[in-house]
Design a protein around this nucleic acid. Structure first.
Length: 416
RNA sequence: GGACGAGUGGGUGAGCGGUUGAAACCACAUCCCUGCUAAGGAUGCGUAUGGGUAACUGUACCGAGAGUUCGAAUCUCUCCUCGUCCA
């Protein structure tokens, strides 16, 4: 959530940054106006309430001393009517402000380059060189079907489009990848957690998926429960509405979950294969930290994801997202894109974000620093999307005869 | 699904409708003493928000929401969660 106090104090500075993110200046002006209105409404209410409280105390004294309370009661009753009016106004203003503020994205960091979409992202570095193929490499869906690893049609039969089924070595590889990634992350100091795949509205508001992006979430019929679009939601919200002690930080966690997305805005994109599915496996990293630690932990998380790909010998590149591609909650984001020879391009396989205190303010996650309570910084990142890693293995490890080699580091996980 | 019980500050746990924002204990912080694998003492210590340079102070919050009342942690209703018993 946007820092409304800061918006009041430094409207020009903050609005300039948010405009880069595509937020309408008029909206911000309205927001500022509303928060001033709310303040006035609050003062009105509090003044009357203070009067009411003191008169009530007097009332007690009068009674104890046996004085006549007739006149006092008349005053108190009249004041009470005023209070109800003023309170209604205050509530209304508060609600208006809240719903507006919840829809404002995070302020992008100054380091985020301007840009429209993924084409304007800035490459930071490449890791490993894609190998040369002496033949035309196949795309993963072809390889997957040839090897009997993935069955796209049966996925559709069971559910609907954008669902698939893994068989045999395909399924085993997924399991191996999940275990490999979790172990890798644990070795880097991220504690493994296992969390619910269904969460309530509060959790999704905490991390920023709601109220704005309800269309992309699967919701349980008749219940305020949603399938998680990423483990970031349950894991970050683990500490929602808590005050942590300083020595608990940083809290670094990793979790494997299935993720569920309606992909509402992605009609026609990646319809073939398992790049964009409604349900997919992902191993996630989440960290809560002190503000001064978050930059360093962010870098740790990027390395962690990149090093997994390196261990799998998959060429990839690291990309700084531009304002247009930056998510709602992120202050800045680095994507890792893996090389897919079949598609002859780099494709996103991980997205690592520092939301600074944006989510912490929404989810009320603080820590105690001496006397003061301070918002933690929250970070999240994939390490990695399992399906896409499998895709990358298929395409990079393919042989001319259509067979696929197994990455060395995964062999122990496959009993090889 | 039915019956009963419970939900209080970081934790445990008191709390008659009126100086109770809430005893006590633990934890925590600062200081003192002591001097050593530890102990003792003093003080402070809920959250959020408004005003004030500050001391300080207003308001709200005792699971959530509504109600009764001049006044509610304390009474009533609804909901949620947890526990115990029954089907």
């Amino acid at each position: 959530m946007i820092d409304l106090k800061l918006l009041q104090k430094d409207f020009d500075g903050m609005s300039a940054k948010l405009i880069r993110k595509g937020v309408d200046l008029a909206l911000l002006e309205k927001l500022k106006e509303k928060s001033e209105e709310l303040k006035v409404a609050k003062i009105n209410f509090e003044t009357l309430q203070a009067l009411q409280n003191s008169m009530s105390k007097e009332f007690g004294i009068y009674k104890r001393e046996g004085k006549d309370i007739g006149e006092l009661k008349a005053k108190v009753d009249a004041n009470k009517i005023e209070i109800t009016k003023v309170l209604d106004i205050q509530r209304e203003k508060n609600q208006e402000l809240e719903s507006m503020a919840m829809a404002i994205p995070n302020v992008p960091d100054d380091s985020v380059p301007d840009g429209e979409d993924e084409n304007d992202n800035v490459e930071l570095k490449k890791v490993l060189t894609p190998k040369e193929f002496s033949y035309t490499p196949k795309e993963h869906w072809e390889l997957a079907e040839e090897n009997g690893w993935i069955d796209f049609e049966r996925g559709v039969k069971l559910a609907t489009s954008r669902f698939s089924v893994s068989f045999g070595m395909g399924a085993k590889l997924e399991r191996a990848l999940i275990n490999f990634m979790l172990n890798f992350n644990s070795d880097r100091g991220f504690e493994e957690v296992s969390v619910p795949a269904l969460v309530n509205r509060t959790a999704l508001e905490g991390t920023g998926q709601l109220p704005k992006f309800e269309d992309d979430l699967y919701k349980m019929d008749g219940q305020e429960l949603f399938l998680i679009p990423t483990a970031e939601v349950p894991v970050t919200n683990l500490y929602q509405d808590e005050i942590l002690s300083a020595n608990e930080l940083p809290k670094k966690m990793t979790a494997y979950t299935s993720c569920f997305r309606k992909e509402a805005g992605a009609a026609g994109r990646d319809t073939r294969g398992m790049i964009r599915q409604h349900q997919f496996h992902k191993v996630e990293l989440v960290a809560l930290s002190k503000p001064e630690q978050s930059e360093e932990i962010f870098n740790e998380m990027v390395s962690c994801a990149s090093d997994i790909l390196t261990a799998l010998e998959l060429p990839h590149r690291i990309v700084n997202l531009c304002t247009g591609d930056l998510g709602f909650s992120a202050a800045y984001t680095t994507d890792i894109e893996v090389w897919l020879p079949g598609q002859n391009q780099y494709r996103e396989i991980s997205s690592i974000s520092n939301t600074r205190e944006f989510q912490a303010r929404r989810a009320k996650i603080r820590y105690k620093d001496g006397k003061k309570n301070i918002m933690v910084h929250t970070l999240n990142g994939s390490s990695l999307a399992v399906g896409r890693t499998l895709v990358a293995i298929m395409e990079n490890y393919q042989n001319e005869d259509g067979t696929i080699d197994i990455p060395e580091v995964l062999k122990p996980y496959l009993g090889m």
